[in-house]
């Protein structure tokens, strides 16, 4: 039953894809035009429609054009032709590097701090207003401040990743730690467990599912934000790639980049989903 369900699901998925591709093909097939002749010939050439017979409708490539473009990008992902022209793999690596760095710094700060906030109602009460105030600020709103104070756009991008990924981790850690079952803490108390052992062997594993959830949310946000941040700062990264292709009105490349962003985002998310599965416990 389940097997046939899965099979039918896959068939339906493929059918949806086929309908999508067909619609795409129909929507982007250029209308036939007669070849220009005589005096109009140069004009047509300057308008760029001598080769294809007609301009691309709205600049959207056909599925076949898109496939060949994607293949071209994927077959040489790591080329480097100067500071402003690098392969998709290099750009993704830059973005991932920035995300990894900003995110790691955020985790190093948010998780221990969240721990203290979660364990101390006093600290919680003292810091809560700040967290509530800072949390809803759009990460990109920090960009001008970062550029002015840090004076380096690459570092500013990392800062923006840091600031956007710090809140979910901080809040979830504090929430998870504060919500550790009293019974488990009492077990530790009756066993005279020292503070470090309690933190690492009781509170951390008890709060781990909530913390990892926060980390997963943070990673999702960080990956969303890096694209926007790189579109602003330029230079390198997948966001810059999108901007650069958009600047050329090359929708095919933009769509390709969007697809890659989606794939990487999905991989990152499933990484954390796996991690979450590992630390989740049934009561």
């Amino acid at each position: 039953m389940t097997k046939s369900l899965r099979l039918r699901g896959a068939v339906l998925s493929l059918a949806i894809l086929a309908v999508f591709l067909l619609t795409w093909q129909i929507a982007t097939t250029p209308a036939k035009t007669t070849a220009p002749s005589g005096a109009d010939r140069e004009y047509a050439e300057l308008m760029g429609n001598s080769a294809t017979g007609a301009a691309l409708a709205n600049g959207v490539p056909t599925p076949a054009q898109f496939a060949s473009l994607a293949w071209k990008q994927l077959s040489d992902p790591f080329y480097d032709r100067g500071p402003n022209d690098k392969g998709i793999g290099v750009q993704l690596a830059y973005s991932l590097g920035r995300v990894a760095l900003g995110y790691a710094i955020a985790a190093l700060i948010a998780i221990p701090l969240g721990f203290f906030i979660g364990m101390s109602p006093l600290l919680y009460a003292a810091l809560d207003p700040y967290i509530q105030l800072l949390k809803p600020i759009s990460p990109l709103a920090w960009m001008p401040i970062a550029l002015y104070t840090i004076k380096d756009s690459a570092t500013s991008a990392i800062f923006v990743i840091f600031i956007c990924s710090v809140w979910p981790m901080l809040i979830n850690t504090a929430f998870g730690v504060a919500g550790v079952r009293k019974d488990w803490l009492n077990v530790a108390r009756t066993l005279e467990v020292g503070p470090l052992r309690k933190a690492f062997l009781v509170i951390l594993p008890a709060a781990a599912p909530t913390i990892i959830t926060g980390m997963r949310i943070s990673m999702g946000i960080a990956w969303l934000v890096i694209v926007a941040a790189e579109m602003l700062i330029g230079g390198t990264g997948i966001g810059y790639f999108v901007w650069n292709q958009w600047n050329n009105l090359s929708l095919g490349n933009v769509i390709f980049a969007v697809l890659m962003i989606g794939v990487i985002g999905m991989l990152l998310d499933s990484l954390f989903a796996n991690l979450q599965k590992k630390v989740t416990y049934a009561e």
């Binding site: 500071p83 002015y148 579109m231 602003l232």
Partner: peptide, 18 residues
């Protein structure tokens, strides 16, 4: 040669010495 994403960014990166 750094391709820059906009005039405001050119201004900001000149101001901050990047």
């Amino acid at each position: 040669l750094k391709k820059t994403a906009g005039w405001a960014l050119v201004r900001d990166q000149m101001l901050n010495g990047e």
